[in-house]
Design a protein around this nucleic acid. Structure first.
Lengths: 211, 211
DNA sequence: CAGATACAGACCGGCGGTCTGTATTATTTT
DNA sequence: AAAATAATACAGACCGCCGGTCTGTATCTG
């Protein structure tokens, strides 16, 4: 095959395959040969579209991040919701996305493969917190649905806890552990006047642990 | 040279050199050849003492962890302190250690080199929380110096926040940011009846940022 | 028909890791 | 106590594989 008319499909195939393999065996243990075999492409094809192996995973992570950011931006700019409602929607949808495997299904590899846990941290503290969660927190304070003295800190803590502590992807957990953690998290946010995790999501997280 | 009478010195030399190199250029970019050159040993010598390159860094991280654990165990088993006082001493000393560079001076590389951020997380959630912080929390609940319904969760959250969010090593922060984060952290713990960060430590952390 | 594009695949340097060899020390045997 | 044997602490040649490069080629575009 040569001079494919739709090279963008090739790029997507590389990205899809790579993210699957990274998820299955981790970044380091996935070799270029694995990607070549799985895509039925050649080394030349892959290096035609990507400058390096690292460029592939960065593209993968970016794709995830963009989907997340788009969702967060949409909720942030939605009309007719209180700040607390928006925040709830954000956490709800974000968790949903990671469970349904639609978009964040490779999040585990970001964690398991620590190189991108750092990227994850940066994206949480450098983008998600200040650009999406913080404005919504402020909105909630303004409309009275949230009470908080230090929204900057709160936005960071919420995201850190939700993503790095609560998320069962990090470590094997029993459904019971997940439920008590969720309860603790809700108890924490309740002092600021809102609650983020409802029964649905908690069930989904608990279910996720069983697999 | 052959049949050295003090092989333990060789092991320490490898560990010292490796941790320095990992700190300087990161784990991936440090090759075995670098370690060989810097230690003036041979590949055979290194592989005689360590099974793999990864085993070297695991040993390095372990050495750090053991110093921490020893301190935590000592405080945990000390007599004549309330649970809250012990907890305060634990966080105080742990932060001290990481600043004075005596023992945790290589912590930055653990973070910068993400492979070991995961190890760090595991050590926090798998060892520090259940073995040291949790018993002390329970002690505090028993002696009335701490009020908490869910000590398991609280122990994890305290450690995650202190190590991954509060610690200025993670990201460039202004002294002001550090102070407000410390205030937020203290406000968080105050609802459980104790406070962990006093002026001394906050000053030390703020000072740390300036360097 | 002259690039430019989209691959294919041989090739390469260096990396982590193995394997064999050797000098020295420790232990057992006689 | 001497000799034989085993175990230790290295040394360094060697290997397979991995990420990355380079050249070649078929197809498309202008």
């Amino acid at each position: 095959m040569a001079r494919n008319k739709h090279p963008e499909q090739t790029v997507q195939r590389i990205l899809d395959t790579a993210s699957r393999l990274f998820l299955e065996r981790g970044y380091d243990k996935t070799t270029l040969q694995d990607i070549i075999d799985a895509t039925h492409l050649s080394k030349g094809a892959i290096y035609h579209h990507f400058a390096s192996k690292e460029a592939i995973i960065i593209a993968v992570v970016d794709r995830v991040g963009e989907a997340q950011s788009a969702m967060l931006a949409e909720v942030r700019d939605r009309k007719g919701l209180t700040g607390a409602e928006k925040l709830r929607e954000m956490f709800r949808t974000s968790l949903r996305m990671s469970f349904q495997g639609k978009i964040l299904h490779m999040l585990p590899f970001i964690i398991e493969n620590p190189k991108f846990m750092t990227l994850q941290m940066q994206s949480i503290l450098g983008e998600a917190a200040p650009d999406y969660v913080l404005p919504v927190l402020r909105e909630g304070i303004a409309d009275g649905s949230i009470q908080a003295d230090h929204p900057e800190e709160l936005s960071e803590v919420l995201l850190i806890l939700a993503n790095l502590w609560l998320h069962p992807i990090f470590r094997p957990s029993t459904p019971e552990q997940v439920r008590t953690r969720c309860a603790f998290f809700n108890q924490f946010t309740r002092q600021y006047g809102f609650e983020l995790l409802d029964g649905d999501i908690i069930d989904a997280m608990a279910e996720f642990c069983r697999t």
